[in-house]
């Protein structure tokens, strides 16, 4: 029933179940004084490096039986659920290589059409999103931070502190947007990612565990698959239909997380991309989309 493992999932570890959802289960692993989460997910669409993707139907049955506090052990043989009567999962079952977050693309381009589509689509989601408590405040603060980062070319500590942990959700909106921004900077091979990492580290304690780990991953250039896919279509040519499908996949996560990540990514790409003069002419070529 295992489809694929993330490169950061495997190994010898032991942890306990932290939280369970219909489509995912988090396992908390404490290594000396550091905490990390390993995530079991249903289906491989949303895979990340710390994830183990299971076949959807059997995953849902398994997840329904897992409860917070249960012990989980991983070794070379597989994943075990001691004292629960639940049978072990053999990691070797997976036919595919382990998944790792890809490096930035070779050529740095922006696909204006895809960006426009995603911007419009996010605009349409706005009414729903803004009904969430503090969502507007989080976005205002994030946008201000990005603008300032662009004009001063270095992160403003005070503005940054106001973004992290801001807004609704188990992963607060501000954090999701920062992850998206990191993804953009990583894709653009911008040196700002490093300065952002330095500036962000002292603030990581002020958010939830799940968020903290996602940010840590992001700062070293590791992202979940939906964000990577979205970045690919935003940066390179894609069929409008593909853009649409990938956008929906990326934004179907959580109530706002997906959209927040997409906004951070889109805004980051648009603000920090230095357009090459030749791209001025690319819009002329739209007929190709239909063949």
């Amino acid at each position: 029933m295992i489809i694929r493992a993330g490169i950061g999932f495997e190994g010898n570890w032991q942890g306990e179940i932290h939280s369970t959802y219909a489509e995912a289960v988090n396992v908390c692993v404490r290594d000396s004084d550091e905490e990390t989460l390993k995530t079991l997910i249903a289906g491989e669409e949303n895979i990340g490096e710390r994830c183990l993707a299971l076949e959807k139907r059997s995953a849902r049955h398994l997840f329904a039986r897992l409860k917070p506090g249960m012990m989980v052990r991983c070794d070379q043989l597989g994943l075990h659920f001691p004292k629960t009567g639940i049978s072990s999962l053999r990691l070797t079952e997976s036919q595919k290589d382990s998944w790792s977050s890809p490096p930035p693309p070779e050529s740095i381009l922006i696909n204006d059409l895809s960006c426009k589509f995603v911007r419009d689509a996010l605009q349409k989601e706005k009414t729903n999103l803004n009904a969430l408590p503090l969502r507007i405040a989080a976005q205002t603060r994030f946008d201000a931070f990005v603008e300032d980062l662009h004009s001063h070319n270095k992160p403003d500590d005070k503005l940054l502190a106001g973004v992290i942990g801001a807004g609704p959700g188990l992963t607060p909106s501000g954090d999701d947007m920062l992850v998206g921004l990191c993804c953009a900077l990583h894709g653009l091979k911008s040196s700002l990612l490093e300065s952002l990492a330095v500036a962000l580290r002292p603030h990581l304690g002020n958010t939830t565990l799940v968020s903290r780990l996602l940010l840590k991953d992001a700062l070293r250039g590791s992202f979940h698959n939906p964000l990577i896919q979205l970045r690919n279509v935003l940066m390179h040519d894609a069929e409008p239909a593909k853009v649409c499908a990938i956008f929906h996949q990326a934004t179907s996560i959580g109530a706002s997380s997906g959209c927040d990540g997409a906004w951070g990514l889109l805004n980051g790409l648009l603000v920090f991309h230095q357009p090459h003069p030749s791209s001025m002419f690319r819009l002329e070529d739209t007929n190709n989309c239909y063949h």
């Binding site: 408590p133 503090l134 405040a137 989080a138 502190a161 106001g162 973004v163 992290i164 942990g165 801001a166 807004g167 609704p168 959700g169 188990l170 607060p172 501000g174 002020n206 958010t207 939830t208």
Partner: peptide
């Protein structure tokens, strides 16, 4: 509203 209790959210509230 249900929110995570981060410092920033407390400030905003």
């Amino acid at each position: 509203s249900g929110l995570m209790g981060t410092t920033t959210n407390l400030d905003l509230l």
